[in-house]
Design a protein around this nucleic acid. Structure first.
Length: 643
RNA sequence: GCUGCUGUAGCUCAGUGGUAGAGCGCGUCCUUGGUAAGGACGAGGUCAUGGGUUCAAAUCCCAUCAGCAGCUCCA
């Protein structure tokens, strides 16, 4: 009896029942036979040797598809597990999935797996590949599987089996290593591409810090050695952009053991960068009717009890300071203080909206292992603001915010995507369904009115607020937490924040809590990586460096510096007794966007010889012309060409 | 916080029981130079901190502190 197989191109072929996908692939061509890893039959992924018994849609999976790549990586994780089983005694296996860009496998072994072991494991894997060890699918019922894993003393697999309901399940055997697995897998180890083990780290069994910690080995695999190399090259490139590395190389910030973990020391260059950002931030906020306030770093615990932060977030707050027998806390947020300022007067609806902004430095406890450069720290500066408004004003306030977000993020060359995050499952109950609904609707309306494309993040809101979250896409294609706009449903009630309405009665105020940059520390860290340290001119800590060719040109160089400084350009002079090549290199290593070389010709003609990061040597230009040009670039916040 | 790795000059790193090293940077001198490293000489170290083992510790052991990777991807 023949069955009809429909191929992805729509053609139909007839084959005897019992034909396997491998045979079909072979009949189509030797190339496909060689590249085939698995098959898709009526949408379900299966092994190549599964007999086809009835009419079906059939697609051969090769390494060139995302699906094939993932499958191959998963198979490599099994090969790695097999190798680890060969090399170490009494290994207990956890799980080993394919992940984005690679795979991992968790092992429980005596002692630890070291970075040196990775090489041995890789070599063993290479042998397994060379031996073309087959991947054998074994089906058994759950009792047999349990018996097997009991016999092999695979406690983690037994635990996983506890949770499986299917009666018949599949296992894959790669020589001595047999693993519960849905499959499919490559037919034999020789079919996998180029792989590399990357690192080993601890990982809790099932991500639970109460459970045993296992050794997780991460690896990556690609169809070809070339693609693998390209990927490793990308990893190296990302490392070169690491803000921690650039922060040191460019002398932007540091940390010090005696100062404490997660506390940033901003050096002059880093602080200059920050101030440029802050000045820009202040200007935009002033233009949009914000008023600036400043509030203390510590406050009586009373206020944080009232705000609800102590009961909810005490774990993240620092221990109390006792002052005159009263307990104080280092502030973890600025909101209560802004509310107190609001409440120093009776507010009429005529006064609203009131927008208070503060670059407020707050301190929060983060697990020591979670700290990361300036991106995850224990003390950071929020670009915080609270908008006090009437319900009627809410939509237009949010619209205004969306404009602000667009303007600011554009200036830094960020694209971003927008999410409307709705009420989470566990959420503040003092605000009723209706209130949650109203606030969420206002956010939605503002997005619609502004024509902002957004996705709904169902249940992704804060405990106390629906919000609009923006995720920034950086130059390396990664995502960063960006601007957030939250309608606070908690604080107005707790602090009884009210205004007098047209009707002469008190009404509860709406408080919008928002941050555009988030934390200055994190934002600057992200910017460093986004630009790889080559900041656009408007941001660069040192915008211009004037290089004198010999001692005789030092005075002219300093005059040029003065002219630049007079128009607000951050300029330095390198009059060191060194060669031009040396100074040009130094300026390049320091990532200064413009180097101006001055020698006899320039002194004589009142020019500067321009070397820009983007163009290289541009030749001489009259100083006035250069002043115009850089002034324009700074005013326009011109971004590098590839942004 | 947990697991593993790491901590030597300002930076990057070598040194693995027996007198502390290199390159870069820094200083001085020579050199006065035209777009990514000119030459010579020199200064610079409680080898993260505190204990321990040893005739002897940067090196071995313990603790502490800090940094790095991961702890999110699930049969």
């Amino acid at each position: 009896m023949n069955i009809a197989l429909t191929l992805p191109d729509g053609s139909v072929i007839k084959r005897p029942a019992g034909t396997t996908p491998a045979q079909v692939a072979a009949s189509i061509g030797p190339g496909l036979a060689r590249d085939a890893l698995a098959a898709r039959v009526d949408g379900a992924a299966v092994d190549l040797d599964v007999p086809l018994e009835q009419d079906a849609e059939l697609a051969i999976i090769t390494i060139d598809s995302p699906e094939g790549l993932e499958l191959m990586r998963h198979s490599v994780s099994h090969i790695m597990a097999c190798a680890v089983g060969r090399l170490f005694d009494g290994v207990k296996f956890g799980i080993g999935p394919a992940i984005e860009n690679g795979f991992y496998y968790d092992f429980d072994v005596d002692g630890a797996i070291s970075a040196d072991d990775l090489e041995r494991i890789e070599e063993e894997m290479a042998r397994i590949v060379a031996e073309e060890i087959p991947f054998e699918r074994v089906e058994m019922n759950i009792e047999e599987a349990r018996e097997l894993m009991r016999r092999k003393d695979q406690v983690y697999k037994l635990e996983l089996l506890e949770e499986i309901e299917d009666h018949v399940l599949s296992l894959y055997r790669t020589e001595g290593f047999i693993d519960l697995c849905r499959g499919p897998h490559v037919p034999q180890a020789g079919k996998v591409g180029a792989f590399r083990l990357l690192n080993v780290a601890g990982a809790y069994w099932r991500g639970d810090s109460a459970r045993p910690q296992m050794q997780r080995i991460y690896g990556t695999a690609f169809p070809t050695e070339k693609e693998l190399e390209e990927h490793l090259e990308r990893l190296r490139k990302a490392e070169e952009r690491d803000h921690r590395r650039l922060g040191q190389e460019l002398d932007l910030f540091s940390f010090d053991e005696e100062i404490g973990q997660g506390l940033v020391l901003w050096h002059p260059r880093g602080e200059r960068l920050r101030q440029v950002i802050e000045d820009y931030w202040r200007r935009l906020h002033a233009e949009r009717g914000y008023e600036f306030v400043r509030t203390p770093h510590i406050a009586s615990e009373k206020v944080f009890r009232r705000s609800g932060h102590i009961p909810k977030y005490e774990d993240m707050m620092y221990a109390p300071l006792v002052i005159d027998e009263e307990r104080y806390r280092v502030k973890p947020m600025n909101c209560p203080a802004h509310i107190k300022i609001f409440q120093t007067h009776t507010r009429s609806y005529r006064d609203l909206p009131i927008r208070y902004a503060e670059l407020g430095t707050v301190y929060r406890y983060e697990l020591s292992g979670a700290l990361h450069g300036t991106v995850r720290v224990r003390g950071f500066t929020q670009d915080d603001a609270h908008i006090f408004c009437t319900p009627e004003q809410l939509v237009s306030e949010v619209e205004d915010l969306l404009e602000l977000v667009e303007e600011m993020m554009g200036a830094f060359g960020y694209e971003y995507s927008v999410y409307l995050a709705t009420r989470p499952e566990v959420s503040l109950e003092t605000a009723g369904d209706e209130e949650w609904e109203r606030a969420t609707e206002s956010l939605r309306r503002a997005l619609e009115e502004k024509g902002v494309a957004y996705e709904v993040d169902e249940g992704g809101g804060a405990f106390y607020a629906p919000k609009i979250d923006c995720k920034l896409h950086d130059a390396l294609g990664r995502e960063w937490q960006g601007p957030t706009i939250q309608v606070d449903l908690n604080l107005p009630k707790r602090f009884e924040v009210v205004y007098v309405g047209e009707d002469g009665r008190e009404h509860e105020c709406i408080i919008v809590h928002r941050a555009i940059l988030g934390s200055l520390e994190r934002f600057v860290g992200g910017l460093i990586e986004h630009f790889g340290g080559w900041f656009p001119v408007w941001l660069a800590p040192e915008q211009v460096r004037v290089l004198s060719i010999t001692d005789e040109h030092a005075d002219y160089a300093r005059r040029v510096q003065q002219r630049l400084r007079a128009v607000g350009v951050r300029a330095a002079v390198d009059a060191r007794n060194e060669t031009m090549g040396y100074k040009v290199r130094a300026g390049t290593v320091d990532k200064v966007p413009y180097l101006l070389i001055v020698g006899d010709r320039e002194v004589e003609n009142g020019t500067v010889s321009v070397r820009s990061h983007e163009q290289g040597d541009e030749g001489p230009a009259p100083l006035d012309e250069f002043l115009d040009r850089i002034g324009r670039e700074i005013a326009e916040k011109r971004l590098p060409d590839d942004f």
